[in-house]
Design a binder for these strands. Structure first.
Length: 924
RNA sequence: GGGUGUUUAGCUCAGUUGGGAGAGCGACGGCCUUACAAGCCGUAGGUCGCAGGUUCGACCCCUGCAACACCCACCA
């Protein structure tokens, strides 16, 4: 083995090996375990969030596979309607073409071409992460089976009356020229204005103040062209007399009523509100209550249409706004302009300002689907981890609105509805069925609805359609419901909720039993990673490394706001002056796990991954040490275990208990920490060191040698298996060297059993003995360190006091003690004997003494001791204060009181010894 | 406006039923000791956001407040 760990030498080769050997497919007769991958977009490339998510999923999958479950990690990708269409449209635009220029069929063809040739980027990247996905069952949300299932679902919902077509106000993205759902609208706070307009009163009315007009305030002047009323609050005395009257709508010169509605806030503005039922959701409701007309003044590209007065027709909405304001001003009807911050709705894809627009769309009647989905979480059939996300889910589900599922796009599942010349609609799995359903003759001309379905409509069917629905497959019965969904909180509404609804509806089962919600990956400063900010990291750059120049290029190319490039470059130079070194997949995965504490976002800091890369190297070198010292031609024979052997096995048992508990509660951070702690601070720091005296002793008892070599190997084997779900590559590589020496000729660690703590003996005696030994060694090292004794300098020590047990331990551990503390001589002093001047460490009753003898400066030792005395006396004070409290002694459990008394006794004795020692130094 | 989360060492974070405050990184001092300098040994550093309350005892439970983050809704 090389003397340092090189991820590149092993990773790709191993993955190809695993995949080739088909280790990722479900196997065995164990109970099924299944995770369905949240399907990445075909257009997507792996970002930090994916990499994080897949690390966690793969850890679970590998763990369960090793536990013997029949394990399936279902692979697949999403056709990502809008995202993919936009991407291909951009490509067309580079050729000077629009999609309309080539037509629908050619366009869709082109998207398929793109998908077939460039759409598997993400798959390659997932392989680099070590993800043990079953590639043989790869699915796509537009593959044949999926299309079939989507039709089936649509038709069944339609036939049940749960899908309907209707005209209503929807969120319209004028740039995409499509409806989008409530969820796809992002409200951002922006600065704007509040314009005050005078609407002249009709019929000679005046306000209480005698003015012949009402003043209304609006942030959307251009929509006034579609006003159909002015509203005041019913209890507003200022306007009570005017309700029932009317105003003349300026510019349009229409007479519109003055109505009273609770919706109006008397204290805002003038208390008069213009009502535009066709262009505002609230106004729409007011209009419905009062039977107002809806006047739509926008075209689908948000220019002004024929319903508006002639001068405004054809103007863009923002130009229209300016003209409306200017015209009102010139007519003396502009009453004032205020600055105003308002929430502006923007499309999450296009970033265009969304318009409420009156259109015909397809909707899912959601309440009948939502009710069972709410119950499923209430009664625990689906459980969120962490639990608080259930509240987020409930609050959304209990106020859920019908879902607008049609999209005015070309790429996606086309809606299986046809219209005749009169506009009657016929739905069916295909045109023939639609005809039959409608009792139409073959020669009646029909046109298919041009729209496609919201991408989330098909994603909602993900868990069961990937397993073969609507066929009753073996996979469905074996793997559905899936066990856990691993996802980010940002798509609970988009996806998780909709999956629960649709899956319950069509399979009668929940889609998954648990939802593990992980946090967002942020940069080292806690900021969201984004292309715009240029602070994103590519997981593959962390694995392979990247130079500063390449990184700057990646971050500044194809920016939507190119003016950001200089500042992005500057920040990148500051944050990564040397670029990013290569850390390897295992280190990256380990980092994600270590950062994954529940319910919080994670800050990705290079210093963490560097630390875990070092950890990989540590493990690598520990393995080198073991392999160097354990010949592969070990002669069989009796094995006796040393104290250290028994100790490390016992320690490993508790490590495994901790790991198992952590994994079963999705505490990847605690799991990773347990691995780190055990490997570095128990196995390497202590156990390997403790084996050296024996391994290097030419006179050593062969059966003890065999015992230690066996323990070195078997503990390494066990910890490799325990760590494999987090760091698959390095563990596999080492394991393939280790296993044969234990007589295990299986080809892969992936299919080895995950270690069970119950298989290992707990050995309290060995644990106590090594604790004692550590105490003595640390005591001596502390003296050495503080006194500045050179590490190479051997010293002699004296022992005094202590129990028979101490004497026995000292004898058993003599060679260990000597080596680990660099001690060449150990002498016992009789209890009453006067020791030479010395530096003292206490291990219980036992005095461990290093004679000063020119080695140690008296003043320095006095200072060190004074510090010890100070610490000990503080401890004693605290305990004594507690014991002096009568209430504590009377009310605390007896065991707690006893424990405190014992501690007080120990502390008192130790303090006395230390003080005495300090005094003896003073005499020098 | 409603809700959720966070606040612990210089930084990033653990802290499982209430009973002696922890880790990693960083800092400081010393070491190339035959697995590892991507390493080894040692050291320092915290009024656990603030104020109350419950309790013999609170980082932990309760109330209030503050700051930060996010989600939902929204007054034109």
């Amino acid at each position: 083995m090389e003397s340092s760990f090189d991820p590149h030498a092993i990773e790709q080769k191993l993955y190809a090996d695993w995949e080739g050997a088909d280790y990722f497919a479900p196997r065995g007769n164990g109970e099924g375990y299944c995770i369905a991958i949240p399907p990445p977009n075909v257009t997507g490339s792996l970002h930090m969030g994916h990499a994080f998510q897949h690390t966690l999923m793969d850890a679970l999958i590998r763990y369960e596979r090793m536990k013997g479950r029949r394990t399936l990690w279902q692979m697949g990708t999403d056709h990502a309607g809008i995202a993919t269409q936009m991407l291909v449209e951009r490509q067309l635009l580079a050729e000077g073409l629009k999609r309309e220029d080539i037509g629908r069929d050619a366009f869709v063809e082109r998207v398929w071409d793109w998908r077939n040739h460039s759409g598997n980027n993400i798959s390659k990247q997932l392989r680099r992460m070590g993800s043990s996905l079953d590639w043989s069952r790869d699915r796509f949300t537009m593959d044949e089976g999926f299309c079939h299932a989507v039709l089936e679902v649509f038709v069944r919902l339609y036939e049940e009356g749960l899908i309907y077509r209707g005209q209503r106000l929807v969120n319209w993205d004028p740039e995409l020229k499509s409806v989008i759902s409530d969820l796809e609208v992002e409200n951002t706070e922006e600065r704007g204005h509040l314009w005050h307009f005078r609407y002249p009163l009709a019929g000679g009315l005046t306000t209480r103040e005698g003015k012949p007009y009402l003043v209304v305030a609006t942030t959307r002047p251009e929509t006034m062209l579609g006003d159909t009323a002015v509203a005041v609050h019913p209890d507003d005395e200022r306007y009570a007399a005017l309700v029932g009257g009317s105003v003349i709508l300026p510019l349009a010169d229409r007479e519109i009523p003055i109505i009273a509605d609770e919706y109006v806030d008397r204290d805002f503005g003038t208390g008069c509100v213009k009502i535009t039922p066709a262009h505002d959701f609230n106004d729409n409701e007011v209009g419905a209550r009062h039977g107002l007309a809806l006047i739509n003044v926008f075209n689908e590209d948000a220019t002004i249409n024929e319903a508006a007065p002639q001068p405004y027709r054809g103007l863009d909405r923002f130009d229209a706004r300016e003209k409306v304001v200017a015209d009102l001003k010139s007519q003396g009807l502009l009453d004032g302009i205020e600055d105003h911050t308002l929430m502006v709705p923007r499309g999450d894809r296009s970033n265009a300002i969304v318009e409420p627009l009156l259109t015909h769309q397809w909707f899912v009647k959601i309440q009948p689907l939502a009710d069972p989905a709410i119950k499923a979480v209430e009664n625990g059939d689906v459980e969120f981890v962490p639990k608080q996300y259930e509240n987020v889910y409930f609050s959304w589900m209990r106020n859920i609105q019908d879902w607008a599922i049609s999209r005015q796009q070309w790429w996606g599942h086309r809606i299986p509805a046809w219209y005749d010349a009169e506009g009657n609609v016929y739905v069916g799995r295909d045109e023939d069925e639609a005809r039959r359903n409608g009792g139409l003759a073959d020669d009646v001309p029909l046109d298919q609805d041009p729209d496609v379905l919201d991408t989330w409509f098909s994603s909602a069917l993900w868990t069961f359609v990937t397993l073969g629905w609507p066929e009753e497959t073996e996979e469905l019965s074996q793997f559905h419901p899936t066990d856990v969904l691993v996802t980010g909180h940002d798509i609970i509404f988009f996806w998780v909720a909709r999956m629960i609804m649709m899956t319950l509806k069509f399979t009668g089962e929940v889609p998954f039993r648990q939802v593990y919600v992980h946090g967002l990956v942020r940069d080292a400063d806690g900021k969201k990673m984004s292309k715009t900010k240029g602070n994103g990291l590519d997981p593959l750059d962390l694995i392979d490394g990247v130079s500063l120049d390449e990184l700057i290029d990646k971050r500044t190319q194809n920016l939507t706001q190119p003016q950001m490039a200089p500042s992005i470059e500057k920040n990148t130079r500051a944050d990564f002056p040397e670029g990013i070194p290569s850390y390897g997949t295992d280190a990256l995965r380990f980092t994600y796990c270590a950062l994954a504490s529940t319910g919080r976002d994670v800050r990705f800091d290079l210093s963490r991954i560097e630390g875990y890369r070092n950890f990989c190297n540590k493990l690598w070198n520990a393995a080198r040490f073991v392999l160097m010292n354990c010949p592969d031609d070990e002669e069989p024979g009796r094995r006796d275990l040393s104290l250290a052997d028994r100790w490390i096995v016992s320690e490993m048992r508790s490590f495994l208990e901790t790991s198992e508990r952590a994994i079963n509660t999705y505490r990847f951070d605690l799991y990773a920490n347990a691995v780190y702690e055990f490997v570095w601070h128990e196995y390497c720091d202590w156990y390997l060191e403790l084996t050296k005296p024996l391994l290097w002793d030419e006179q050593a008892d062969p059966s003890l040698l065999r015992g230690t070599r066996y323990t070195l190997l078997s503990v390494l084997d066990t910890l490799l298996r325990a760590a494999h779900p987090i760091m698959p590559f390095i563990t596999e590589t080492i394991w393939r060297e280790v296993a044969p020496r234990l007589g295990n000729t299986n080809p892969t660690i992936m299919l080895q059993p995950f270690p069970e703590p119950a298989d290992l003996p707990s050995d309290p005696d060995a644990e106590a003995a090594v604790e004692w030994l550590k105490g003595v060694i640390v005591g001596i090292r502390n003296i050495r360190g503080e006194a500045g004794i050179k590490p190479a300098q051997e010293i002699s020590i004296l022992l005094q006091g202590g129990s028979d047990a101490d004497r026995a331990l000292a004898q058993v551990a003599e060679s260990l003690l000597k080596r680990l503390a660099k001690v060449d001589r150990i002498d016992w002093l009789a209890d009453g004997a006067e020791p030479p001047p010395n530096a003292l460490a206490l291990v219980g009753e036992l005095r461990v003494m290093v004679p000063l003898a020119g080695l140690i400066d008296v003043a320095a030792e006095r200072a060190r001791l004074a510090k010890e005395v100070e610490k000990k006396s503080q401890e004693l004070n605290r305990i004594e204060a507690k014991l002096a409290n009568e209430n504590f002694v009377a009310k605390a459990p007896q065991a707690v009181v006893e424990k405190e008394r014992a501690k007080a006794g120990d502390a008192r004795a130790a303090l006395a010894t230390l003080e005495q020692q300090l005094a003896s130094l003073d005499d020098l």
